[in-house]
């Protein structure tokens, strides 16, 4: 039974409407302005009571009903309102006659209201077709796995070979001489001073060494020739070594320097200054 068939059962002065919830608000089956459910109306008070109690309610005479004393004058005289499960409400009004409905009719309308339940049930959502998304996911997985299946294992970053770290205590005489030469080349004279023997450091303070070496390097293109010099071992002993700093390439015509190194407790140290003076 639908709403049209129910309407056929009514007298001319009787009206019927179905209310249902949609989006948290009451919606009606009629779109005309004949039905006013605004705040403060008797209709709203009636449907709120039925909605709250979940039981059918009959109004014998709306103009005398104490439930509508605080409401605007009701546009109907008698009414039956029944819940349709928990989905909506069925409201039947007689707008002319009081006592138009009996309690027997209330039960009848309540039963008819239950028959409307099916029509108010929301349509089940159509089952989603997952074929396409699953096919796409499978295809993506296949494409992603291709490099792993046929490309071999991913190349691992090769660990950098660790170079041996020297210390002044363990460095050989040649390394100390090479380090001293590099210090002169880069202008790191304070670092070079640390490679002098303790005896030389006692006799020559660091500031004096810096001044003396700078002025020595400034003479006769010595600073320029540093980059064309290399260390050659002349004599190697357990506690004393002699190295020669020979010019090569473009500086081949320059003079050679001879450096003497001593083995001290802290390692090999230069006993002589860059020019060979002790």
């Amino acid at each position: 039974m639908d709403l049209g068939e129910l309407s056929g059962l009514l007298q001319p002065e009787q009206k019927i409407i179905v209310l249902y919830r949609a989006g948290g608000q009451w919606q009606t089956s009629a779109n005309d302005t004949d039905w006013d459910f605004s705040s403060g109306t008797a209709r709203l008070a009636l449907i709120q009571e039925v909605d709250r109690r979940g039981q059918p309610v009959i109004i014998m005479d709306a103009h005398k009903d104490e439930r509508f004393l605080n409401c605007a004058p009701a546009p109907f005289r008698s009414a039956i309102c029944c819940p349709i499960s928990s989905l909506g409400l069925l409201l039947v009004e007689d707008r002319a006659n009081p006592r138009a409905f009996s309690f027997d009719q209330q039960h009848t309308w309540a039963a008819r209201a239950q028959q409307l339940t099916e029509s108010l049930k929301p349509e089940p959502e159509p089952r989603r077709d997952l074929t396409k998304p699953l096919a796409l996911a499978g295809l993506t997985l296949c494409l992603v796995s291709v490099p792993f299946l046929f490309g071999g294992t991913p190349a691992r970053p090769q660990p950098r070979p660790q170079i041996p770290v020297l210390s002044r205590e363990q460095a050989t005489a040649a390394t100390v001489a090479e380090s001293y030469l590099a210090g002169l080349r880069t202008g790191n004279l304070t670092g070079s001073y640390r490679l002098l023997s303790s005896d030389l450091q006692k006799r020559l303070s660091e500031p004096r060494y810096l001044r003396q070496t700078e002025s020595w390097l400034a003479v006769n293109d010595r600073a320029w020739s540093l980059k064309y010099r290399q260390v050659k071992m002349l004599q190697a002993g357990p506690s004393k070594c002699l190295v020669q700093v020979v010019p090569i390439g473009q500086a081949a015509q320059k003079e050679s320097w001879t450096w003497e190194l001593l083995k001290e407790e802290e390692g090999w140290r230069l006993k002589t200054l860059p020019g060979g003076e002790s």
Partner: peptide, 15 residues
């Protein structure tokens, strides 16, 4: 002259 003759490893003392 770059890398010829090869430069052996050397120390740089940085105070």
């Amino acid at each position: 002259s770059i890398g010829s003759p090869p430069t052996p490893p050397y120390l740089v003392v940085v105070p």
